[in-house]
Design a protein around this nucleic acid. Structure first.
Lengths: 336, 336
DNA sequence: CTGAAAGCGCTTACAG
DNA sequence: CTGAAAGCGCTTACAG
């Protein structure tokens, strides 16, 4: 069963390959090909099960109809849900998605960009700070890129961001309003935009309410080791037994925090309140259910794909660089 | 900044394009190209940042160095963890991964296969039953395929499976040994191999221990609606208040079950024991922690990629079709 | 409306 | 060891 080519179809129908090509690509009107001829060609394509060879088309047009999605870690629920939403959107727009995880390894991230850049029409990236140079190169080479969740302050690229500042301050306000006085903020000391933003937003808000104490900021060094965060959080809690609320900057920190609270037998919310930036399936189910700030994943995906496809079609990358700021939703549950 | 081609590199070094091609593809020894020449070419490639155009190479060789991964739902933790493990393995073997979710939509699944089959060198698929025809076509066209987690009884293809039967019977034994007498099994009535296997394994084991009662088998119709399973489980529990143990066939059923048990205020394990086939991050953290049967995700991925790459290189698809059976691990926690 | 032809960037069998 | 050339399967500007 040899693979059919456009020539075979042309021969079968009795036309020249170009005519078939025009029909395949929906240019029959433009090329004034008769309805009957177009129908005959379509019918033959259907009957034979002919599928055009994309490599050949790509070689000719330079387009691959593939989007490269580079996330931090596909096994993290935030990213896997984001990936799925992006895949759905892209599929509808006629694009496939190649995805990769950088695992916060800048080297892997830059390698991936380099490797993929010939093979994809555009990128959707949640960049780590070390990928900056490579992203700038992409921009220079006019390859469409949309950044999600993070951005580089001094690089002008379209991006879809979550309103960290507003969401964090909503969280702080709720904690303050409920009467908590000794509110700790737990963050990874990653060199990442969104973590920095969340931290500085917390500091800003908490200072405004007059409750700031520097000892209540816990910056944990980024780690992929299993219990590194747990150890850090436990040490912190043992040293600061008077905290009455814990605000975690991301869901995996919250999860590790919950583990520690269990071990320490600190009752939520009586002994300590818990608030998580970034929701997780677990939090609904946990008892008590954990109050969380939910990032609008579907909307991030929708906007990201929409902006990217627009750039890919119009070749306007670098012109009107939008920075979309989406609001996150505070979901009150039982943990404070 | 025009893209460089192999011709440009050849011109710069002062050789003919074929020589460059041989060096790129590691055939310098075979082609008896001098060390110095090869080094000079490699140096130039590095300096200019030249990257070969894969579309052109693919057109010529028919190889794309891409693996198509088709799973049920990438937002489900089992699949996203599997996807990540597969991506890591494939990356090391020099392959990229294009992944897609079928969402148990046979039409989407077959479409994806059709669409991708020209663009990938091989497939890794967790097939739904409706994809059988398309998978058979793939086999006939000699496209390497490895099936994961499920298989078709009458289609001879390499696959990596989990020992459902043995794992379920381990679970039943533990429940029986702990003295539970009224053990219910909850499964989706999906037309999927692995669900069927788990169900029949349960029936077999429970009959052997003389505790079989047909009313304790709960088959829930497959649904993507949010609370369909919960409703089904609640109705079942209200009708069968005497059950003393719940064995869920997959983690999302367990999670929905836990929600219902919370609402009903049935204490675990005093009022009812819980055992989940398929572990989940939640279960460790839940209180009481939920005993689960953990599928060997990393090993499934490793074997799947290994078998696939072997087939892709040796073109031996259809010869020695292995069916690997991996053991799952019962992780005792506090729920029974 | 249709046809002939060039060319995208590689790989490789063949000749030297 | 090196060189010249064909060809993978498309798309598209051009001529009719």
């Amino acid at each position: 069963m040899k693979q059919l080519s456009i020539k075979d179809i042309a021969r079968m129908v009795g036309v020249v390959p170009s005519t078939v090509s025009f029909v395949i690509n929906g240019k029959e009107k433009e090329m004034r090909i008769s309805e009957e001829m177009a129908d005959k060609i379509r019918k033959t394509i259907k009957e034979t099960g002919y599928v055009p060879n994309r490599s050949a088309a790509s070689l000719r047009t330079g387009k691959t109809h593939v989007i490269g999605l580079i996330v931090e870690d596909i096994s993290n629920s935030f990213f896997s849900m984001l990936a799925k939403a992006i895949e759905d959107m892209a599929y509808k727009a006629g694009y496939r998605v190649v995805y990769c995880s950088t695992e916060n390894d800048d080297k892997k991230g830059t390698e991936l960009i380099k490797m993929l850049s010939k093979q994809v029409d555009g990128f959707i990236i949640t960049p780590s700070s070390g990928m900056k140079e490579e992203v700038i190169k992409l921009k220079k080479s006019k390859k469409p890129v949309v950044l999600l969740d993070r951005y580089f302050a001094d690089v002008d690229l379209p991006c879809v961001l979550v309103n960290n500042k507003g969401s964090i301050s909503k969280g702080v306000e709720l904690l303050v309003q409920k009467g908590y006085k000794k509110i700790a903020f737990v963050v990874t000391a990653l060199d990442q935009m969104q973590m920095k933003e969340r931290l500085s937003a917390f500091q800003h808000s908490i200072k405004k309410s007059g409750l700031y104490q520097s000892r209540f900021i816990l910056k944990l060094p980024f780690s992929t080791e299993d219990s590194a965060y747990e150890t850090g959080i436990r040490t912190f809690l043992e040293k600061n037994e008077d905290v009455d609320a814990l605000f975690f900057a991301t869901n995996y920190l919250s999860i590790d925090g919950l583990k520690v609270l269990q071990q320490l037998k600190w009752k939520i919310p009586d002994r300590v309140a818990v608030l998580s930036f970034d929701d997780h399936e677990i939090f609904k189910l946990y008892s008590p259910a954990i109050t969380a700030i939910n990032q609008p994943i579907a909307e991030i995906a929708r906007q990201g794909v929409e902006i990217l496809t627009q750039y890919m079609h119009e070749q306007v990358n670098g012109k009107k660089d939008e920075a979309l700021l989406l609001d996150a939703e505070l979901i009150p549950r039982e943990s404070l």
